[in-house]
Each structure stands twice: as C-alpha cells, then as structure tokens.
Design a binder for these strands. Structure first.
Lengths: 344, 344
DNA sequence: ATGAAAGCGCTAACAC
DNA sequence: GTGTTAGCGCTTTCAT
C-alpha cells in the first residue's frame, strides 16, 4: 500500500533488538520504559545508553494493544474555519502539547449524520476521550449517542451542555448573562429597540434571546416577536437581515445584537454600504471577539468569550479526568468580557 | 489510568468471538474483512450478518501492528488560529473524510524546535504520512529533518517547497506571479511607489519582494531598499508600519502591498484611524482573501489563494501517493485570483 | 474455500 | 533485580 515505505524502511528496531544489544531481557527494558518496576541503576543506564544510540522508539500500537493509552484525544468541531473554533482548538492544542497529547481533528460541517459517522470512526481509533466544541443543535439528534459514548469515554464539552450526561463535563461561558450585559449596555446607551440576529437552530441562540427578553423586561421595555430575526450563521447572513431592518425601520434608531461576530461583520458592512451611521443611528454588538472584530471601522463592540482560555481549561479538565480525578461540578464557567468599542 | 472505562467497559468483541458466533475460523473472517482472499458467498453473508448483529469493530491497533495503515494523517501547521491555515485544514478534512481518513493535528507556534518535537511525536503514532502547511522559514532549520522523514513517509507540502526532497510533493500557488500581478495592478492604478510589508523570516516574503522588484523594473520604476518594511505576521503588525510610512511620506500618494491579509487589515485600520483616505491617497493590497477581507470598509483588494482548494488538492495528491501512484511533478500549482475591491 | 498457527512489538504476571 | 512467557486482536502464510 504505502509504496514509499518499501524503499527506505529498514525493519524497525524493536524492544527485542534493544534487549539483545543491551544484553538484558525485554521485560527489563519494558520496566525502564514504563518505570513499572525496580531496575538496578547500572543496567538502567546501560539500557538508556543503547536506547539513545539506536534511537529506539517504542511502537505505540503494540502498546495500545496492551491497553496503554495512545495519548491521542478526539476533537470534534462543526467548522474549523470558524475563527471562534480555531481559537479554541489552539487553546486545546497548547495544553495538549504540554502533556504530550495529540489531537485528532474531525469537522462535521454542522451535519448531525456526519458527526455521528466521524464519532464512530474516531472511537475505533482508541482515542482516550473526546472533546466536543460548540453549541449543540436545538433538538440534538445525537444526544443519546453522545450519552452512550460518555459511558465509556471521558467527554468534555466546550461551550455546550447536555442534560443527563452525568459523565460529561462542560466548560462554558454564561451566555445568558453575557448577552444580558450586552443588552443592558445598549439600553444604557439609549437604544430601546434591540434586534437579535441568530440561527434558531442552535440552543445558544434561544438562550441569548431569553436574555434579551429578560433584560428588556427588567428595564420595562416591550419585546415583540419581530425583534428576533432568524439568520444563518455566516459572514453573509448579516446583509439581508440589515436590509430588511432598514427598509422596515427606516429612520428609527435601533440596535442589533448579533449572535456571532461573523454575522455582525456582515451586518456592519451592509450598514456602511447603505450609508447608515454607526453607532449614531444603528448600534451593533457582536459575539465572540474574533481577532478581526477590533480591526473593522468602526470597530465592533462584542462579547469576548476568551476562546483560548475555554480551550485551555477544557483540556486541563480533560487531562484531570484522564488521570482519574472526578470533577466536582459538571459545569465550569469561564469569564467573559464585554468589549466596548466603536459600534455602540 | 482511564477510570471511566472501568465502569462500562464490556470486554470488546473480537474477531475470535465473531468467528465463533459465525461458526468459521478467524482467518475466514479476516478474509472478508480485508477482501484478501476467496470466501464462499454464503459464508461471507453469514459472517457479515453476525458482524452487523454484534456490531463488530476491528481493533485498529491490532491491525496497525500488522502494518495495515491506520488511516490517519499527520497535519502540521504553525498556527491553527490563522484563518488562512484554518481554510486549508478544512479543505484537507473534507477530502480526508471522504476517504475515511482522520487528521492528527499539530501546531508548532512557528517554533522550529516545537515543530521537531511534534513531528517526532507524530511519527511514533504510525500515521501514514505527513502534510505540512505553510511557508518554511528562510533558513529552515528542519530542512534536513524533513528530508529524512520524507524518505520513510509520504510528505506533502502545502504552499511551500523544499529543495532536494525528491520524495516530497508540493501544492502551491505561484506567489511570485500573483504578487507581480498585484503590483502591476497597483501601477496601472497609478501608484508608482509601492511598499511591501512582510516578515523577512519567511521564504515567501522574499519571493514576493522579488516579484515587486521585477514588476517595478519591468515598468521602469525605481526600487529602493526602504520600500521593504519588515513586520511580524500578525493583526497588529500593520499599525506601526503604517505609522512609520505616513510620518515619512506624509502627503505623498503610495501603495502598500501586505504579505498577508492580517497585516493588511491592521494597516487599513490604522490608515482610517489616521484619517488617510483609502484608496485615493494610499492603496492597500492584502494576500490570502480571508473571509473577512471582503467585509471591511473599504473592502480589501487581495490575492485569493483558494485556500480550500489548496487543501483539497493537497489531500487528493496525498491519497494518490498513498495508493502507490507516483506524481509526475514535484510541484503542482493552483490557480489564484486577484480580487479587486475598494482599497485600490 | 477454509482452518491452524506463527508472528507483529509490547506489557505484565509469574518465576527465580 | 531480572528473565520467561503468555497474551493483546489481527493478518498471513501454509496446509488441507
């Protein structure tokens, strides 16, 4: 199959060769390899020496066969190209590397069936566990499946939560609170009519909508159904939504809370194209603080979810679990920060 | 170690159990599993039936021990959070999934030593080969190492090229040509003084600088050393560079060619902050066409490298190699496109 | 067409 | 402290 190997592949140097060269038995070698038993210091040194010389690398698959973890963790994400997720992965990777773990990446394109397939594929590879990034769909078709998986493998959810998975742990941001804060900020700035743009297919959107309603109500402001505008979750989704809004509310002053920076960026662009003044007529708030959101002009007010931190904490938690520690709480909240910039 | 497994882990259903249940021998089962020999249709069906029923999954590690590929490919990238790379990975992943391959991801933080470590770690995991994304440093400290690796493993380079690696294959964009085109476009628009912002630590930057020089020369325009401005490769790198330029060339009309959209976005932002009119006084060109570059205002003229395509083609090439096909050329060029928007 | 048995490289009892 | 050996789950000759 792999023709390339045929060429240069000197048959690999196994633990037997090493044992022979060091004039000991394989078990002794294995002992120093795994620190799994007493070995006389001198023989240990002898073995170590030969190990260096011959550049011996244990075959991880043979080890895996003996139920030694492979130091590989499955990571499932809906879309790698989403800067939000990319940052999370970066955080995961940073910590993983420190602990000599590798990540096996799967992207599901937001398709539950693909997710299922990928998950199955992943599990066959004896990864040590699973980290799943991102909000779950409103009516998660893979909920049961994930619950089942979590019975056998440690599962950590980043920025989502699944009911009933008493063996699943979540790292998340209190999105409801964050959204509430952002809305309050808008109200404080004098915007009384706030529209929320987001994809209703995601549980998180609904949570944010709740926050908006709460905030409005707490401020004795009305909420009407038309204040929620369903969009896709993409860079282009903002445009039609803004068009619709401007056509409808022409000269009125209002604010737009976007459930993601991607949507906000598109909205912002369209507002400028339509020559609407931001923020004096229309205010815009994004969500995620992706790197670029500070570079637009006007720069975007947004909720910083500390994505990197989310990833890092997630991996730390995961490794703890792997080590046998049982976390006290199933949810760990991370801080967020409302980054106020020029669009509000 | 993995305490979780202790709980639900019913001892796995092996090929032996399957053989017993289907009333055949393991070798027969193995044959149908790998289509590696003749099996009577009826027994085959019998085996397949039990396989479904018991939901048998072969242990990939046992197979790996027998030199069956693990269907896992190592991917090395300097920074996952870079949208350029993220898009490439997405492309890789799309094709990989179609062929039931998984990606093991490593990020090196642009650190050659980290890269070396990660590479070593990766190779131990009997991945079937390596895909390395992104430009190599000007004086690549890992060149030899990679050459050695490529002797034993298929290696595909995305957007870079390494001399002498007769077993390494590259998918790339003709950056010199692309840059030349962009510069010519600037000249056509009437900008005669073009500055190039980029990180001299990367081979690609030098290539682009060459293109600028060539283009200038072909247009009988002078080039002076100060037209190259060394920057880091980040969102923030554009700011100081722009400051410097504006201070120096105050009211003159000039153009900035940025070796990445990230740099360009930062530059653009700073120009607006300094109230410099774009493009009438200063033109800006980016490189990569990251998704956001169309959403800034003014929107960014940039070179679209078709990152997704780069990834997809790379993976296709890789899989071909895995199948034993020997590509004719060591370099495969992908198309690019100069996307002219509002900054020029 | 099918089965028996010898490995693949390593770990982990169990002996000494 | 060290060696012997029986697996781990699968593939692959080699017989039949």
């Amino acid at each position: 199959m792999v023709t390339f190997k045929e060429v240069g592949d000197t048959m690999s140097y196994t633990i037997y060769d090493l044992a022979k060269d060091a004039d000991v038995s394989v078990s002794t070698v294995s002992r120093v390899l795994n620190k799994s038993g007493p070995v006389k210091e001198s023989t240990k040194q002898k073995i170590l020496k030969v190990m260096k010389e011959k550049n011996y690398k244990p075959n991880v698959y043979a080890r895996a066969l003996n139920n030694i973890g492979l130091k590989t963790i499955g990571v499932v994400v809906s879309d790698i190209a989403n800067p939000f997720f990319a940052e999370v992965i970066k955080g995961l990777d940073t910590i993983a590397r420190e602990h000599e773990y590798n990540l096996v990446l799967c992207s599901t394109s937001n398709n539950p069936e693909t997710e299922r397939k990928e998950l199955t594929l992943l599990l066959e590879k004896q990864i040590e566990g699973l980290i799943i990034i991102g909000s779950r769909p409103t009516d998660d078709p893979n909920r049961e499946f994930l619950l089942k998986i979590s019975h056998d493998f440690p599962v950590v959810l980043i920025n989502s939560y699944i009911r009933g998975g008493d063996k699943m742990y979540s790292i998340l941001v209190d999105e409801k609170k964050a959204t509430y804060d952002a809305c309050q900020h808008l109200i404080d700035r004098g915007y009384e009519r706030i529209f929320l743009l987001g994809d209703p297919a995601w549980a998180t959107t609904l949570k944010k909508l709740d926050a908006l309603k709460d905030c409005l109500s707490d401020n004795h402001l009305p909420y009407e159904d038309e204040q929620f505008i369903g969009t896709y979750y993409s860079y282009t989704a903002g445009k039609p939504a803004v068009n619709e809004l401007i056509n409808k509310y022409n000269k009125e002053r209002f604010a737009i809370f976007c459930c993601s920076d991607m949507i906000a960026l598109g909205a912002l662009r369209e507002l400028k194209a339509m020559n609407i003044s931001v923020p004096s007529q229309v205010a815009v708030v994004g969500y995620s603080n992706t790197p670029v959101s500070g570079l637009t002009s006007p720069s975007l007010t947004t909720v910083d979810q500390r994505m990197n931190e989310l990833g890092e904490k997630g991996m730390l938690l995961f490794i703890d679990i792997l080590k046998g520690k049982k976390p006290k709480h199933r949810k760990t909240y991370c801080d967020y920060e409302l980054v106020i910039r020029e669009t509000t």
